[in-house]
């Protein structure tokens, strides 16, 4: 299973990679929105995890591109420190499948990833 992590914070990248790789997933990283869009265009992922506040292209725009321009059904998890209701609703309206607030519980992250991958 291949997961794309779109995140610009190196500490967060290390933490997510550590957890997901320990569970046997293949992990690729995009450190800004442009890189994320390029990678999604060039490769197939089983799941995409994205931060919202990123350079060049934000997470909400990435979700919008995935759903409304690329028409992909890949599961999307938003992983953000933004926990306000408006942002969460906007992410779900655009097509996110789940929303996790930072700092995340590693076990919660794991179970949410598994849940979405099983549904595929």
């Amino acid at each position: 299973m291949k997961i794309l992590v779109c995140e610009d914070d190196f500490m967060m990248i290390k933490a997510i990679e550590h957890k997901l790789k320990s569970e046997g997933y293949e992990v690729e990283v995009a450190v800004d929105g442009n890189q994320a869009v390029d990678k999604i265009n060039q490769s197939n992922y089983d799941l995409i995890m994205t931060d919202l506040l990123m350079p060049f292209v934000g997470g909400l725009e990435i979700i919008n591109k995935i759903r409304n321009e690329m028409h992909l059904k890949v599961p999307i998890i938003v992983l953000s420190a933004l926990g306000n209701e408006d942002t969460i609703i906007e992410a779900f309206k655009l097509g996110a499948d789940d929303y996790i607030t930072k700092p995340f519980s590693p076990n919660e992250l794991s179970i949410r990833v598994k849940r979405l991958l099983i549904r595929r």
């Binding site: 914070d9 500490m11 967060m12 506040l53 420190a81 933004l82």
Partner: peptide, 13 residues
């Protein structure tokens, strides 16, 4: 606010 926002989860870590 952006810098503080990015720092928050790191402090928990």
């Amino acid at each position: 606010k952006f810098v503080a926002h990015k720092l928050l989860p790191e402090l928990t870590f």
